[in-house]
Nucleic acid binder design. Structure first.
Lengths: 358, 358
DNA sequence: TGGGAGAATGAAAGCGGTTTCATCGGGAGT
DNA sequence: ACTCCCGATGAAACCGCTTTCATTCTCCCA
């Protein structure tokens, strides 16, 4: 039982009890249920505790009570802006409600996710699983042990927060149709992603409704590179606009277009999703706002509220993502003006930018 | 001792012991000191443990041993790509070495940082403090209780990882000087930031060495908006190139320039720092690589290695950031060619992009 | 004035591990 | 063949706190 280095012997409840001339139970109660004690006793105990610099040991308390005051947030990739934002919202909300947050990055792999869930289980009161890569039975196994709230995954009977970006994508397709585009593409992630599937479906349906031809492109792991690499395919397919699964891919597409001397939105329109980094490019990206931070905060609320009830959290909470129109979308190019290498329009299309004020 | 809701009785060491027909002590040893046991016994125990889904309870272990197997990572803003990347590296390294990671976002405030340190202290074996906003005495106070490693802060006697970007900035100034720029600017964050100070100094010194005039601009909290907003000032100051405290600000500057119809690098050169998101714009940003992920991983290593020693970690570990030349830097514009709104050069300057392969 | 109800407190049994110390066999040395 | 010693395992104490249950002690009311 070697103590870790650099740790001054911390005063324990026993010492305080001795010093104050009461029992350990009384000291304990002075901290957790003072209403059971005489005000005088409470004062005496708290006084000596303060004098001794005593602070209740959270670990011991957790072992005894079974509640840790911690939650864990597991997500596929911290470096992805969507998850960073989500994490920020979640962590802040947890802190606000008195909980500390473990972070687990699964590096997009189901296996690591499983390991993290297992390792952390004893140290937390519940999990928030963002876009889990784990298969359903495994998720349910873990959910049976500890309360779990998932984000962006449809699992009946498990608490979940869903960011419904379908309306935003539908609106985006409508926007493009109105701008005269006749052939568009959706650039998605692998089908394991619930979000990407949902978005693909919305684009396909809206495309049909507007009489557009819709190409579906799978970019693989969503990254800037992936977006850039699929530009050749997009141009070959003859589309004049692309909707991407997220802003990172959308920016990749913009970079790929720029490399070829094509301007946005003059020659090609691009729509992203998440709206975290959409405003940081030039031209700023038209994007579907996913309210990531709010999704994180809501998930934490759902989880924490569930602690009070005997039953696990089970409701589903839907957040609707709306289209934010900026300057990466514009009128479809005339059929022959393409590939002429015209310089980018300086001010973008005449679409408003309702979010530039934020 | 009400258990939290929704908790199936987790298998304990006792159950495994019964099931495997051995004592608790043996089960414990099978996990923590298997070399004391017969290989056959170990196998038997681990087998039944696996079958039962037993995982050692970290909380109980922590109470007994005094070491939690956790560390905490405190940083000013999770959403900032620099810290996201750092976090990713830190978390991965901690996991690799068997530690779980608490995340604390201080929202750039010293007070929250202090609270987090206090709340988490009992649950972790040590802290990694990235770019702490806390004042020195308070940091030392916490460091006296638990091992602490700081990133990007110079505190004698406390373990620290410093990302030395000065050489990169010096090289960047040299590059700009070679390209014919005579008046440049450094766009920094408030002076509370060690990194920004260090960079400002490097730019000033290198500028003097090359006979350039160097303007110092304080952009406030480093953000895309801040970068965009300072463009007017930059142009008014008559500089033809700017070095920014980080890539986010650099991208803001690029956006501000684009809004005014100025092309990069045709009319103006921009250099960023961190190199996390530098390659995701068009033109891709020349940037000083800060090796964020490595900084995070190194900090964790420093902290964890310190656990073995009786004394707290105290060394300083320096990571040198090198300049990565991409396409946002080019020859200084001819004095009169400015503001003509020429389209961006399609391929950027003739500078190589050594990192485009990554 | 006696009997309870109830409030304040204490004793002690866990929570789920780790670790010391004792125990038990079984070669090796002579 | 008889110690001696060591390697493998078990029994039990302990980590610091919570909580049940028992114990006192008051105080109120019949």
């Amino acid at each position: 039982m070697t103590r870790p280095p650099n740790t001054k012997p911390t005063p324990t409840i026993r010492l305080v009890a001795q010093e104050a001339g009461v029992s350990q139970a009384t000291v304990s109660r002075a901290f957790s249920q003072p209403e059971l004690l005489t005000p005088a006793t409470v004062e005496k105990v708290l006084g000596t505790a303060l004098r001794l610099g005593y602070v209740p040991n959270q670990v011991a308390r957790a072992l005894s009570t079974g509640r840790t005051g911690n939650i864990a947030l597991i997500l596929p990739d911290v470096a992805n802006p969507f998850f960073s934002a989500l994490m920020r919202g979640a962590q802040a909300q947890a802190y606000k409600r008195g909980y500390a947050t473990f972070l687990g990055d699964s590096d997009e792999t189901a296996h690591l996710e499983d390991m993290l869930l297992g390792k952390l289980a004893a140290q937390v009161d519940g999990f928030v699983l963002a876009s889990p890569r784990l298969d359903e039975p495994l998720i349910r196994k873990h959910a049976a042990r500890k309360p779990v709230v998932v984000i962006n995954r449809e699992l009946e009977g498990i608490g979940r927060v869903l960011v419904d970006t379908a309306p935003g994508f539908t609106a985006a397709v409508g926007l493009l149709a109105g701008l005269g585009h006749r052939a568009i593409a959706y650039v998605g992630a692998p089908r394991s992603s619930w979000s990407s599937q949902q978005r693909a479906r919305a684009v396909a349906q809206a495309g049909t409704a507007h009489g557009l031809s819709v190409a579906q492109v799978d970019a693989g792991r969503p990254s800037h590179e992936a977006g850039r690499d699929c530009v050749a395919g997009l141009l070959a397919a003859g589309v004049t606009a692309a909707l991407a699964v997220d802003d990172v891919v959308a920016q990749g597409i913009m970079a790929g277009l720029a490399e070829r001397g094509l301007s946005v939105p003059g020659d090609f329109s691009v729509v992203g999703c998440d709206d975290i980094i959409a405003a940081t490019t030039y031209p700023p990206l038209t994007s579907v706002n996913a309210r990531c931070a709010r999704a994180g905060a809501n998930a934490v609320d759902l989880l924490l509220n569930g602690f009070a009830n005997p039953a696990p959290p089970t409701g589903s909470h839907v957040i609707t993502g709306e289209l934010v129109i900026r300057s990466s979308t514009g009128p479809a190019p005339a059929p022959d003006s393409r590939a002429s290498g015209t310089p980018p329009a300086e001010t973008g299309a005449a679409t408003p930018d309702p979010s530039s004020r934020k």
